[in-house]
């Protein structure tokens, strides 16, 4: 029951601009759910609403059946990577993870585990301000995995990774899903999602235009990329 994100009828405006216009979908356990759509489709806003950072005008977003804001020790329920730049440049990567661990009552030992897991151990004591985007992404994954959560939500996790990093990320996403977790991944890289996502949600203009299994989409359109181009045509106007 815990490994699920349920987004229902989210509406949100920023002044005159409609960001979310009835966004509704579910990301279930044991698979990677791809979350795709043009810039401005509302993917990032949806993720911020799920995390309680932005408040929707109406609608609900639930993590394992609860609102994120109501979760105790939320990082043990959902791990998120939405802004790899959300760091204080003067603090080391290890100390960034350390305060996060303290905020959830987790032991420092867990910090070393996730550093090892993401390959960040050799640079963990350096200032985060000096990290490349790829290192920040890995540190962000380490932060997301800190609480060993049943649900993960990653915004553009492939950004800035080198080819080795991309292979690593692909393997990580697969294994997280294989462990029974719900993994929601937004990306513009259809070829990456083609291989790892079991289910894909296509967003356009603040709502879902299609949601189906990757297999079904590939059968109908030939590939995720052509499915994307067909389904989101005309919704990508920058507003």
């Amino acid at each position: 029951m815990d490994a699920i994100i349920e987004v229902s009828e989210l509406h949100k405006r920023f002044g005159p601009a409609v960001a979310l216009d009835g966004m509704t979908f579910t990301a279930g356990p044991g698979q990677v759910t791809g979350f795709v759509g043009p810039n401005g489709a509302g993917k990032s806003t949806t993720m911020r609403v799920i995390l309680g950072l932005d408040r929707p005008d109406s609608g609900t977003a639930l993590v394992g059946g609860s609102r994120y804001q109501d979760l105790r020790k939320p990082l043990t329920r959902l791990g998120a990577l939405i802004d790899p730049g959300a760091l204080q440049p003067g603090r080391s990567g290890r100390n960034h993870l350390l305060w996060l661990a303290h905020s959830q009552g987790l032991p420092p030992k867990r910090v070393d585990e996730v550093l090892e897991m993401t390959g960040m151990r050799p640079v963990a004591r350096r200032r985060a301000g000096g990290y490349s985007l790829g290192m920040r992404q890995r540190l962000g994954i380490a932060a997301a995995m800190l609480g060993d959560p049943p649900v993960l939500m990653l915004d553009e996790p492939f950004n800035g990774l080198d080819p080795e990093g991309i292979v690593w990320m692909r393997g990580l996403l697969r294994s997280l899903a294989a462990e029974g977790r719900a993994v929601l991944v937004s990306s513009h890289l259809m070829s990456e999602l083609q291989d790892v996502a079991g289910h894909v949600v296509f967003a356009g203009a603040g709502k879902v235009v299609e949601a189906a299994s990757t297999v079904a989409m590939t059968e109908r359109y030939g590939s995720l990329e052509s499915a994307y181009l067909t389904l989101t045509r005309g919704t990508g106007v920058l507003r």
């Binding site: 995390l51 804001q69 959300a86 760091l87 204080q88």
Partner: peptide
């Protein structure tokens, strides 16, 4: 306010929503 400049505030309120 310094956390708004660095963007760290996002991590802070994600870890501690209250």
């Amino acid at each position: 306010a310094g956390e708004y400049g660095s963007g760290l505030i996002t991590a802070t309120f994600t870890a501690l929503p209250r």
